[in-house]
Amino acid sequence: MSWVTAALRSSVGKKFVMGITGLFLCGFLVIHLAGNLLLYIGDGTVYNEYAHKLHSNPILLFVAEVILFAGFLIHIYLAIVTNRENRAARGVRYAVKKTKREDRTVNLFGWTPDTTMFASGAVILGFLVVHLSDFKFGDIVHGERIAGLEPADKARILMSDAIRAGIYLVGSIFVGIHVSHGFWSAFQSLGVNHPKYNDWIRKVGIAFAIIVAVGFGSFFVWGISGGEVDPAVEEAPVGSSSVLETAPPRPDQYTQK
């Protein structure tokens, strides 16, 4: 076994890669959220411009997507492998199990973010399947053709469906829960633990989790309020122009760049 394989197979090595890919995915979340928030500027043209610019260099986009997918795949692969090994390591389960930690603030009947990382990750994975089938490979969404539409309008139509918007809300919240432990946990896995920085890393992690959950979650409100076929929609937040008041839009209704 070469030293690289030995390292990647070891418990510490796997956690190291888990931490690196996790932080890489956190970085992706920041960029993704910043891009999405452009939907709130004006009538969506800024967002459209950003989306078109992103797609204007297919080679660069392809490379970026391959790296991103690789990040996800490695992270998920290691999640499954370590989860299986960790369960096997216990063997016979306890009849009664109780924590000795009393400092956990987020605690729902004993479920805490740090002990449910695999579950929250699995929910995120489920959400990702819906998300990718909508925006990347989506063609027809609840009866409407969205392929070929301007990106902002695609988003508007998709998110106008309460159930769909609800799925996105759940996805956002679970990503927030996942990174609320994952962010600082990654630092520990990478060996960064020092009284000078620990407090900061924790605080940044919590702030990041809230920003991610609220930031992505806000599109739930945007979607269901912007999607209403109702004149009151004019008062809705900026960006939610009333596309859906009329019949399903045709691509040529919009100014193409």
Binding site: A6, S10, V12, K15, E85, N86, S189
Partner: peptide, 15 residues
């Protein structure tokens, strides 16, 4: 660490 893993202990998840 190699022996730790061979003995069948799990990996740390920082709980």
């Amino acid at each position: 660490i190699a022996t730790h893993d061979e003995e069948g202990f799990g990996a740390c998840t920082n709980t």
